[in-house]
């Protein structure tokens, strides 16, 4: 039972604090910082379902976030849907897209899959940049009146913040739920040895397609919320390859395959990045530092921070999942 897992309650407390503290202090700049942390945790956690659980590196994970943003914004502004409904619909549409796509590209193993995901990202990006209903390369804007319907800009921004925090909590709970389920066990078997998994009875084709699709859902919802909050979207910010890659760095840093590691890596990396970006000397070297971090982790600590903790305190494996 998920309710008996300490991590489950930890997630709820963490999310509640994140929602409450900036609201209580009415601190808008803290809110804007934290929403980026939440986004990082969402991206890293869902990426973890593919990389950490299933052993498939997805370089183009951000495609789900961007597409979610487009579908959500289109429904919320052009079709005047309620924001929450639009975001959920975006999640659903993008998940279905991932399912169909996954049936094709998940026939590829290992590195070949990873390469295909880069191709998918760039192909989708150039498609959207040519797609008239979504404003081609100039993108789409949220009309100011849309915020009025949510009770004014201030209210709308706080509301999207709480929603994003909710999506973050759901991302972590989803990771935990899958990790302790039979479905998760099947995924781990695929990660360890896909051929052996098939012979043990795991329907790898279906499992991989489902997890690929599931890993698309919450990032797409988050995309709809984030771009709504930002008020605009265009192909270069929606499908930013760099952000996709940073997701991988976050995950490797925290510890792939663990619920807490993905979140920890996401949070820490985002903090580090905002520090680097605001530091006048280091702002140009954000990529260099991210690259160096990734290299060090891959070469010397493939288990990331949590893996390192597990080695120090083996019993931690039972509590921190």
């Amino acid at each position: 039972m998920i309710l008996r897992r300490p991590v489950f309650w930890l997630i709820l407390v963490f999310a509640a604090l994140m929602a409450f503290i900036p609201f209580h202090a009415n601190d808008v700049s803290m809110r804007e910082d934290l929403i980026l942390v939440a986004l990082a945790v969402i991206l890293a956690s869902n990426l973890n379902l593919m990389i950490g659980y299933t052993g498939y590196v997805n370089f183009g994970h951000i495609v789900f976030y961007g597409l979610g943003g487009y579908v959500g914004l289109y429904l919320a502004t052009v079709r005047n849907w309620n924001l929450v409904l639009a975001a959920l619909a975006a999640g659903l549409v993008v998940s279905l897209f991932a399912l169909a796509l996954g049936m094709g590209i998940l026939r590829l193993r290992g590195a070949y899959f990873a390469l295909a995901t880069i191709g998918v990202l760039l192909a989708v990006q150039s498609f959207v940049a040519n797609f008239d209903p979504w404003g081609r390369s100039t993108g789409m804007y949220v009309d100011f009146s849309a915020y009025q319907r949510l009770g004014g800009a201030r209210h709308a921004l706080w509301m999207t913040y709480f929603l994003v925090i909710g999506v973050m909590a759901l991302s972590m709970i989803l990771s935990l739920g899958i990790k302790i389920s039979k479905f998760g066990l099947g995924l781990f078997a695929i990660r360890e040895d896909e051929d052996a998994a098939v012979v043990l009875g795991v329907n790898t084709t279906v499992f991989k397609a489902i997890i690929y699709s599931v890993s698309a859902f919450l990032p797409a919802v988050a995309g709809a919320l984030m771009f709504y909050k930002n008020g605009m979207i265009d192909p270069s910010i929606a499908f930013e390859f760099m952000l996709s890659l940073e997701g991988i760095v976050m995950l490797m840093l925290g510890g792939k395959g663990t619920v807490v590691g993905a979140a920890l890596g996401g949070g820490l990396y985002e903090k580090l990045r905002s520090y680097l970006l605001t530091s006048p000397k280091l702002s140009n070297f954000q990529l260099v530092i991210a690259g160096a971090l990734l290299l060090l982790v891959v070469l010397f600590a493939p288990g990331g921070l949590i893996g390192w903790l597990y080695r120090l305190v083996p019993r931690a494996r039972k509590v921190i999942e």
Binding site: G110, N284, F285, G291, L294, L295, V298
Partner: peptide, 30 residues
């Protein structure tokens, strides 16, 4: 980036060369 991961999984070298790629691009951009 490669010498240390020869013999490890293909994903290790994929990620390690990728990390170097990020560093080169970062320095180049600077």
């Amino acid at each position: 980036s490669v010498h240390w991961v020869i013999g490890r999984s293909q994903l290790s070298s994929l990620l390690s060369t990728f990390a170097v790629n990020m560093m080169i691009i970062g320095i180049g951009t600077a």
